[in-house]
Every structure is written in structure tokens, then in C-alpha cells.
Amino acid sequence: MNDDTVGAYVRVAGYGYHDRPYYSVKREGFTTYLLRLQVEGQAETVIDGRRVPLGVGDILLLAPKQPYELRIGDPSAYQTPVRSADYYIFCDGPWLDAWWRDRCRPRLATIPLDDGMLSLWRQVAWEKRRIGRTDERISDYLLRVLCLFIDRSLDDWQTRLVSPESLAAHRMKRFIEQNIGDELTLQDVADEVGLSVSRAVHLFKETFGCTIVQYIVDVRLKLASDRIRFSAMTLEQAAESAGFRSYSYFYRVFRDRYGVSPKQYRQQMQ
């Protein structure tokens, strides 16, 4: 394939946040590939007639014409608050056809949400939002890199030997990510894996190189920054929905992290 041509087209890309029940079905599938990554809360899909839960780090990989169904919360109880967020990319092109055929692709898999992976999803979505200034070649290569990162993450995750200690640490990490919008205490995290608080704190720091509290703040900041960048939420709503109960505290840690205020950050991203 000639690398000077566009081989992977990003047709639609974005960030979705749902605070009310939601239901979508397309039994005949889409005309493009769909990549969807759950980054907060929970959802549910249907694979081969079975209802399958989607948690943080779960990625849906759908080829054209594969059936699609997504449920968030109970659509019959629309006023019931829920919390779910995801990145999605509808894409096609000859490079993607070759990438898909290269191996047997799972419809659903779990990948670790490291900074490199998440930054690629964000960049693909942001590039597509650059109205009047988009460059299909940039989107093309960003998407190719993302697909290769997905492959590497799947290979690493599936072949890694996981000790009981490492498994417990990853369970704590996933618990934090799934409940990040709620009040979270060290006791809550430790109870999830049946450990004492002191043991849980030590194991988490040993595995991931940061404390549980640091990780909670880090995840909340990333979620809030996504909502400031991609949604029409007010700054206060973005902070609260990400789990910050005090806006003044959010303002301080946000400015420390990004070097600008939340308002300035939004203005820079427009």
C-alpha cells in the first residue's frame, strides 16, 4: 500500500457521556467499522444473542454489517440517573480492511487504560472536531497508530502472567475506574479485594507506582478535562460529574496539573 495515500478514514469520532438511561440498536450493523472504548461506568451489549456487560477498559470491535446493540441503565426508567462514558470511532478504508483480516478479531476485549492509549483516542476525536482545519492524512495515521496500540495491548494483556497480588491490584484499579463518580474511600477499595487498608495501599503503590488517592484524583482530572473539551457541560457540572465535590479543590488541582484554569483550558481547545 502506498503510504502517501489515505488508507484509514475516520468518518465519525467523539466522546459520549450519558447521565440518563440510553438504548441503541442497529441489527443490520453499520457500513463502517466501529471501535468503542468504555472509559467510565458500565453499559451492556449483545453478542451472539447473549447480554454482555461492558466495564471500564472494555473495547468493542465491530466490522461492517455486524449487529450492534447498546444499553445503558434501564431505558424504561429515564429519570433514573446513570453514569457512563466512552470514546467511539466509525472508520473504514483499505488499510483497516487489511488490519481486520490480519487476525481473528474479538468482538469484545479488555485493555489497560494507560495514558498512551487514552491520549490516542482523545487525539483522534479532537482532530475530527477541527472544523474546516481537518487533515485526513493526520487522522489516517493517528487511527493506524491507535489500531496498532490496540493490538499490542491485547497481546500484552492476554500473554501476561498475572500473580494473585497483581490481579488484586488490577481489580482495585478497575473498581476505582468503575466507581470514580461516587464517593470513594480507601476502605471501599480495600474491601473490594478483601484486604486491609494498609495492605491494599502498599500493593497498589507497588504495582502502579502511585498511591490510591493519587490515582483517584488523576482519573477524575482526566474525565473532567474530557468533558470540558468535548461536551457542553458547565465547568461546575464537568467537575461534579467526574467525582469532585468541591469546585475550589477541583480548580486548584486542575490548574496545578494543566497550568491553566478550567475556563482557559476550554478556551484553548475551541
Rank of each mutant, 00 (worst) to 15 (best):
L37Y: 03
Q123I: 03
P164C: 04
D155N: 10
G181W: 03
R27E: 15
R174C: 06
T110C: 04
I72H: 07
I228A: 12
R137Y: 08
R160N: 05
I150S: 03
R101D: 13
T211P: 00
D218M: 00
A109D: 15
Y249V: 13
D86M: 11
W121I: 01
C147V: 10
V56S: 11
D58M: 07
S231I: 10
A85V: 06
Q237S: 12
R101N: 10
E44T: 15
L235W: 08
G132D: 10
V39G: 05
L186W: 06
L118I: 02
T110G: 02
D19W: 02
A43T: 13
D102E: 14
I180Q: 00
G181Q: 05
P262M: 13
E69F: 08
G7D: 06
E240G: 04
I131H: 12
A13L: 08
T185V: 05
G41R: 02
W95V: 09
R51P: 07
P64M: 12
S153Y: 11
A85Q: 09
G7W: 03
R133Q: 15
K205R: 03
E136I: 15
T211L: 01
E192W: 07
K222Y: 04
Q264P: 05
L195T: 02
P112C: 01
Y78Q: 15
F30N: 06
R107N: 14
H18T: 03
W126Y: 09
S153E: 14
T234G: 15
V124K: 00
P64W: 12
Q158K: 04
V12E: 14
D4F: 08
T32L: 03
S198K: 07
F175E: 04
V213F: 00
A63K: 09
P164W: 07
W100Y: 09
W121N: 01
